[in-house]
Design a protein around this nucleic acid. Structure first.
Lengths: 338, 338
DNA sequence: GCCGCTCCTTCCAACGTTGTACAGACTGAT
DNA sequence: ATCAGTCTGTACAACGTTGGAAGGAGCGGC
């Protein structure tokens, strides 16, 4: 059986509360008493029962993070950052993945492990606004992604349109004029996908470069295989872009693989820009130029937003938009033409 | 304030316990009573307080998984599998990463979030046997990695020596005779690294092929950069292997990157085999042949081992070795010479 | 030597839940 | 009509902890 305060109290010949006071560094405890109790604690190997403490205090020190897919390195790296930041605040992280399915996202948002977690960081893919409207759960929530409508939840995001425009501008600056966008999917609610497409279109339009639908490559998902498929389909249709801007690094990597198979050289024949800056992009045969969101800062903003909400439980959450930085990392996949 | 059983009981005009019975689907409740209570539950939006339930039951339904690094896709993919398997058993997963530092591994093994977790799955890198000897914590523990000595904890692993031999045999079968091993590190306790090296040596020796130290490439860690560095160092030393067996896929990918830079073609000039079968290996310019441990089954064995320990709390844990399967996945990096 | 003050320790209750024991009501058989 | 037996719902205690209030010991001053 586990050692409890009661056992320590008996051993030290004091009351339970006194032991509790020692454990919690309560100030009015004489040094002698403290030493005696501490000795008993050490002898018995007492460790506080967190569950009981949680029940009493109403806080558990556990945050939940729900991402679409841990197999996606972007989310794995982000999860790592969240865990680190949480640890700085003496919090631990419960992890779940939703597979990017709307149903599971709703489930998670409605009360994942209710009563166990102090707050939830949700990275939605297919979640719709109305799914959150009637949210009953009183667990503080922050969303990763750009703010929509008037939901009273903080959102953490980078400026996707600006980031996409930066990427496309970089390609234009390299003299590319047939710039494809890979990763569109009309039947998905995925906001970033839409925003990045919008950025692609805006930048091209502003530069007076045509942005025909033939240069938009729809994908079924956003993994390597989806990128490969989309790239192949586009080439098979006779479209020959001289640059590709992909929804994310995985799609870009899939596309590069197909370009390689078809004998098109990156960057000479086709330049490629990805999005996310996953470690994988740095070590391919051709390293990948990419938009690098500041993951560390996203993690920090998310955790600290939750912490703030927890402090001011009284006032309504305000639904701020917290913006993280991004930068373009130039690598081999967009080197100048030879 | 949160709705509790008491509130529901008052609303429905029954006792707290009756509400509890309804919530827990206790059988002796009349349909009428059940409906009445359920109505009150719905009206008030009651949701059980897990913390209190945990305190009462002594179980939390939370497992902890501690891996060296979530940024390593192998561990991210494994974590995903553990989460899925845990979910099948109505368990959730608390995740931590240790950075592969011995100190943090010890800390985690000694009592990570004591009282909150029902069990711990630890994937150690540098942990030494003696670190676990005097373990006081009563949280059930399983270790990922091959069994050492007489520790009373279940171990989950694949047969690393056999797996390494399979990889090397594959290369020998392709006519390679200068097979390097990348990922040795003498100052580390990392067991798999030693076992894979042993397998490499054993297979070569048995085949009557020399296994000189010059073909052993030490690394500082086991990431892509470490593989690149080790490969470069070996080539700079004038050693020209015709095949490389790497500690893991990341090291292999780093090595391939350097081979590519040096104009050595994979697989024509140098064949490469990795270890882990991470998704990344399937989509490089040259897809990677690799030893594929059955991650799903590792996750299942680990979770179910903990569950079993939890059931038979009475009897001592037995310290079994649970072996998962592996298979060699052949891809482009070891195609026959042209 | 007594009073009052301060400082430390103890007692009690509560967090929300569930297991055990029990009380009451109803059923059917005698 | 009574009794045993079954079925339903209730009361109480306990899980391990902490906050608040009350109790007690020690000390100095008169």
């Amino acid at each position: 059986m586990r050692v409890s305060l009661k056992d320590v109290a008996e051993r030290a010949g004091v009351s339970i509360k006194t032991v509790s006071n020692v454990v919690n560094n309560y100030q009015h405890v004489t040094p002698g008493m403290r030493a005696r109790v501490q000795a008993a604690i050490d002898e018995l190997g007492y460790r506080p029962n967190m569950t009981a403490r949680h029940l009493r205090k109403g806080r558990t020190g556990i945050l939940a993070l729900a991402v679409p897919e841990l197999g996606n390195p972007y989310f794995a790296e982000l999860a790592g950052a969240v865990i680190d930041v949480a640890a700085e605040h003496d919090l631990t992280v419960l992890l779940d993945h939703t597979g990017g399915e709307r149903e599971r996202e709703v489930l998670v948002s409605q009360g994942f492990r209710a009563g166990v977690i102090d707050g939830l960081i949700l990275s939605p893919l297919e979640l719709e606004v109305e799914d959150l409207r009637g949210r009953e759960d009183d667990v503080p929530l922050v969303l990763l992604g750009e703010r929509e409508y008037d939901l009273p939840y903080d959102h953490i995001a980078i400026d996707n349109v600006a980031a996409a425009r930066t990427a496309v501008r970089h390609l234009l600056g390299r003299g590319r004029t047939h710039i494809a966008y890979l990763g569109a999917r009309t039947d998905s609610a995925n906001r970033p996908a839409h925003l990045r497409l919008a950025g692609w279109r805006a930048e091209l339009t502003e530069a007076g470069v045509p942005a025909p639908d033939s240069l938009i490559g729809p994908t079924g998902g956003w993994d390597r295989g989806d990128g490969a498929e989309a790239m192949a389909r586009m080439l098979d249709a006779g479209v020959r872009p001289d640059a590709v801007f992909a929804y994310n690094d995985l799609v870009a990597i899939g596309a590069m693989r197909v370009l390689h198979e078809r004998g098109l050289r990156v960057p000479w024949d086709v330049a490629v820009v990805g999005f996310d800056d996953i470690a994988e992009g740095r070590f391919g045969a051709v390293s990948l130029t990419t938009v690098s969101p500041d993951k560390r800062s996203i993690a920090r903003l998310a955790v600290e937003s939750l912490l703030r909400t927890l402090e001011n439980r009284a006032e309504e959450p305000e639904g701020r938009e917290l913006v993280a930085e991004f930068r373009l990392v130039e690598r081999e996949s967009t080197l100048g033409r030879r």
